[in-house]
Computed example of a mutant assay.
Amino acid sequence: MHATIDSSVLASALKLSVAPTTSPHPTIMHARVQADGDSLVFETTDTATYMRHTLPCSVKEPGSALLRVSLLRPIASAPGEIVLRDDGKVSRGRSNFKVPAAAVEAWPAEREENWQAVNIDPEVLAAAIKSAGYAADDETIYTNIRGLHIDNGLVWGSDGVSLSYVAVNYTGPSITVPDGQVSRLLGLLQDGAKIEIGGVNGDLAGVLRVTAGQQQLSIRLLGAKSTDIRQIVKNSCYASKHSSIKRDPLWAAVKRFLPFATILGETKNKGLPVIILAMVNGELYLADRAEENREVISDAVLSAGPDFRAALDPRRLISALAAVDSNVVALHAPEKGKGIASWLMYEDEGDPDATAHIIVPMNL
């Protein structure tokens, strides 16, 4: 192989590399580079995820090579044309480098799949994922909620305390994206992107593939069947009447109040930020646990529902407010006397069955 490529083009592909920096299997610390015609396919993997780029280049001699990613990065960071060879000799202008090359035969090629199309508009899916912002990571003890779920007509995520969901027109096999891959997936969900699933076993998809222009991402999905979120939402207890509240004044007040929400000297293991959110006779206010500090934000209230007083983690409220695409939110307070009561928030005059955020209150 002997191919010439612009360093900026190669650097852009390297930024999206999924190759690990350390691994007991050193082969996957390399990129598979395959040059032919007037293009170069640049592929990286951690064995669960594959990222491919088809890049323009000048090919003097077609062929393949496995080149160490960590050493390609500094070479591509400077401007100029880069020459790649299958023996690991890489040059940029008058500069020459030796990049460790592995045997091409050792590359863990992606398993062939019987791909089937997912008929969701990629921009609609991207918007839904951004609104469902609580994808649980691998440390979450509740295995059935790990990852971000596309299932049963909903895109939803939960970390066991907060839950958000958005209705989408999808009734195919359940898709559960690992939390660590959500941001990478979002980067490819653009107009014209092609979404496919493979490895389907019953009602579970095993692999998700997105092709956007000259980029392609394949993600090995989590295999557990997701829980029935519609039933969880149905069982949540919150006041039937809501308060209509201006989003931005509430958002700004919660962020201002954060320093008062944590007791000085507390660590993450001993205590979490807590605020009291209360409505009394149409007056909305924030307070700390002891109610020694208070901020009144009645100017944010457009219409007040029943009085309420309950505690929550302010960071969860900030996250939900950031995800709601509306200047006014409908806020249902936890129903009094219910052990599984929850906050429910959604776009004012919106449909809570289509998209909403649920936050479990904290015990004082």
Results as ranks from 00 to 15, higher is better:
residue 102 A to N: 14
residue 108 P to C: 07
residue 119 N to D: 13
residue 117 A to T: 15
residue 93 G to V: 10
residue 95 S to K: 14
residue 133 G to R: 11
residue 125 L to P: 02
residue 112 E to K: 15
residue 120 I to C: 08
residue 132 A to C: 14
residue 97 F to A: 13
residue 123 E to W: 06
residue 116 Q to L: 12
residue 106 A to W: 07
residue 125 L to Q: 00
residue 127 A to V: 08
residue 122 P to T: 07
residue 125 L to N: 01
residue 99 V to S: 02
residue 125 L to G: 00
residue 94 R to G: 00
residue 95 S to G: 05
residue 130 K to L: 08
residue 108 P to K: 10
residue 123 E to T: 14
residue 98 K to T: 06
residue 93 G to R: 11
residue 115 W to A: 10
residue 134 Y to P: 00
residue 109 A to Q: 15
residue 126 A to E: 10
residue 128 A to S: 12
residue 134 Y to L: 06
residue 103 A to H: 04
residue 126 A to P: 08
residue 125 L to E: 00
residue 137 D to A: 07
residue 97 F to H: 13
residue 114 N to L: 13
residue 102 A to M: 06
residue 108 P to Q: 01
residue 100 P to H: 04
residue 136 A to R: 05
residue 125 L to C: 00
residue 102 A to H: 06
residue 115 W to D: 05
residue 119 N to P: 05
residue 95 S to W: 08
residue 110 E to T: 09
residue 104 V to Y: 03
residue 114 N to I: 14
residue 111 R to C: 06
residue 93 G to P: 05
residue 129 I to F: 08
residue 137 D to M: 12
residue 116 Q to D: 09
residue 116 Q to S: 15
residue 128 A to T: 12
residue 135 A to T: 11
residue 133 G to H: 12
residue 122 P to S: 10
residue 105 E to P: 05
residue 118 V to P: 01
residue 100 P to L: 02
residue 101 A to S: 15
residue 109 A to F: 12
residue 137 D to W: 09
residue 124 V to H: 00
residue 127 A to Y: 06
residue 129 I to W: 04
residue 109 A to C: 12
residue 127 A to T: 12
residue 112 E to T: 14
residue 129 I to Y: 03
residue 136 A to S: 11
residue 102 A to F: 09
residue 99 V to N: 06
residue 129 I to P: 01
residue 110 E to V: 09
residue 108 P to T: 07
residue 124 V to A: 04
residue 126 A to N: 11
residue 123 E to Q: 14
residue 116 Q to C: 11
residue 111 R to M: 05
residue 124 V to P: 00
residue 103 A to N: 04
residue 110 E to G: 08
residue 104 V to W: 01
residue 132 A to F: 06
residue 106 A to C: 12
residue 102 A to V: 04
residue 130 K to F: 07
residue 133 G to E: 10
residue 98 K to C: 03
residue 126 A to T: 15
residue 118 V to T: 08
residue 105 E to A: 10
residue 113 E to T: 09
residue 137 D to F: 03
residue 93 G to M: 13
residue 135 A to E: 02
residue 134 Y to G: 02
residue 109 A to D: 15
residue 104 V to A: 01
residue 130 K to E: 11
residue 94 R to W: 00
residue 117 A to Q: 14
residue 107 W to S: 05
residue 110 E to S: 08
residue 130 K to D: 08
residue 127 A to P: 00
residue 118 V to G: 06
residue 99 V to F: 05
residue 131 S to W: 02
residue 104 V to C: 06
residue 111 R to G: 09
residue 106 A to R: 13
residue 102 A to E: 11
residue 122 P to H: 11
residue 123 E to F: 05
residue 134 Y to V: 10
residue 132 A to Y: 02
residue 137 D to P: 02
residue 108 P to I: 04
residue 133 G to C: 14
residue 121 D to P: 01
residue 127 A to M: 09
residue 94 R to N: 07
residue 107 W to L: 07
